[in-house]
Design a protein around this nucleic acid. Sequence first.
DNA 1: GCGCTCTCATACCGGGCGGGTATCAGCGAG
DNA 2: CTCGCTGATACCCGCCCGGTATGAGAGCGC
Lengths: 296, 296
Amino acid sequence: MDTTDTMDALETRELRYFLTVAEELHFGRAAQRLGMAQPPLSRAVQRLERRLGVRLLERDRRGVELTGAGEMLLHEGRAALDATTAAARRTRRAGGAAGPGGPGGPRSHLVLAVKAGASHELLHKLLDAYAAEPDAAEIEVLPSGTCEQEGMLRDGRADAALMHKPFNSLTGFDSEELMTEGQIAVLPARHPLAARGSLSMADVSDVPGLPLARWSRHGTFPPGPGPEIHDQTQLAQLIALGRTVAVYPDSARAWLWAEHAAVPLTDAPPVVTHLAWPAHSRSLALAGLIRTATGL
Amino acid sequence: MDTTDTMDALETRELRYFLTVAEELHFGRAAQRLGMAQPPLSRAVQRLERRLGVRLLERDRRGVELTGAGEMLLHEGRAALDATTAAARRTRRAGGAAGPGGPGGPRSHLVLAVKAGASHELLHKLLDAYAAEPDAAEIEVLPSGTCEQEGMLRDGRADAALMHKPFNSLTGFDSEELMTEGQIAVLPARHPLAARGSLSMADVSDVPGLPLARWSRHGTFPPGPGPEIHDQTQLAQLIALGRTVAVYPDSARAWLWAEHAAVPLTDAPPVVTHLAWPAHSRSLALAGLIRTATGL
DNA sequence: GCGCTCTCATACCGGGCGGGTATCAGCGAG
DNA sequence: CTCGCTGATACCCGCCCGGTATGAGAGCGC
């Protein structure tokens, strides 16, 4: 039928190779990350370019640059690779759990990704309510790092996630709104601002001596004067020591220390907590969780 | 970092093999469709099962059955394979179109999938308006079969699509609402009902002698008394001959024949036309099209 | 200017895997 | 009982993947 369709497979391995090179922009480092030698890597990427009939990288003796097509493959390919590893992971998980008779429904074990420490009370209620359901599956709670739930959902490490608009993007997922809450400023209890009944974003965004902390993103930090932090405990301690201030959703009151003070912010955007899941999901257990969540 | 990640690749080829077998539920036919012999296929699927550590198929001497895990891989894997071929297709298309300087923006050529004959006027306005934009890319209009736009968007044959709620599902895509319209009954002009000023769904759903036509879905037809049709022209002709009746959005008036009559339906669900595109898309040209569409 | 180094590409080689043909093994039908 | 149909196994060949050794062009220091 199609004469042009000879051997244009885009194998997973090649895709992984290209993505690594595209991220590192350096064949040697990429090969190291992949646990292989550099020459086979170069050849594999060349072969990929031949197969696609497209130049992906501009090698100019001094590092590597992405072409337009390379940029396209970097984005599209990452999504494709995530989908592939997600398929493998979910299939593995579904493996031990075939129903007693017939083809059997999808697995009876769900992984729920939650930003560590966030929406604690809501999560508690959700888990309790779901556990009370007659055919409840086991739910494994997977604490995720800062805004990492999206990747976990995309590559199959999780089946569902609690996401927080506007911090997380919900594009590509189905979701159900669960809760809306305001935000608070978390201040050192002894700070003058802690005595105020309410604050505006302007009040806290530029307090002398209290710069906003900078969160680690994949090991690097955004520029700025604030302290560098990796997790919530570090942040909490720095606040308690009077070194920084933070803006959090209302539900963060659950983990405040004695040395902390919480003051409502009048003009902060409201935070909406959603339950999100892959758009095409067909799991029975997931459907039950969604039903429970919407009934809260 | 991850110690468990030893050789669990899920190669594209294996995935394609498994999906074919899972669809055919027959190794011989699957091998034929794949253009290869049966023994290597069996081995490939076995190897895949070993790799995943999961039984995917229950072979019982009389055909093949999917296990729970197999069903999971059928769904997740199809999405993954679609994403992979989409990545390849879009990268190829982006190939010839690198910008003049720097890494170059993504391609300047868009493929827009449209259900053949639907929303003709809206499409016309959209194309005209977009063509008037200063940096307009070339737009290729890809007519699709019944509700096939979804697959086209998913596997990269198209970059955007006009979709019609509630007929198309928008899950997994980003979209922008363009138009809402009522629905009409398309009747033979000589039929008694054609004289009425308006109708209800009940009026047309069970008219003696005018059974609703049955559309082809991948070569098969739903059961029922109505005539079997493959495209709109066949339907139009059958209506003109007084053999059937159809329910269509208002904009279908554009292609009505002289022997047709259109009568508004009072209780039909409104049809909402959306412009939809892959959730993670970053194309400049697509962004321009979206901007144009929302400004209509 | 020469060599050093850093980059990626090429040359060659061995082992493993993908694919083909031939054949076996269960199970149902005639 | 035999035939036909299913998928599984045995064996073989050629290619591709990956490794090591080496080449080639560009900046840089002496």
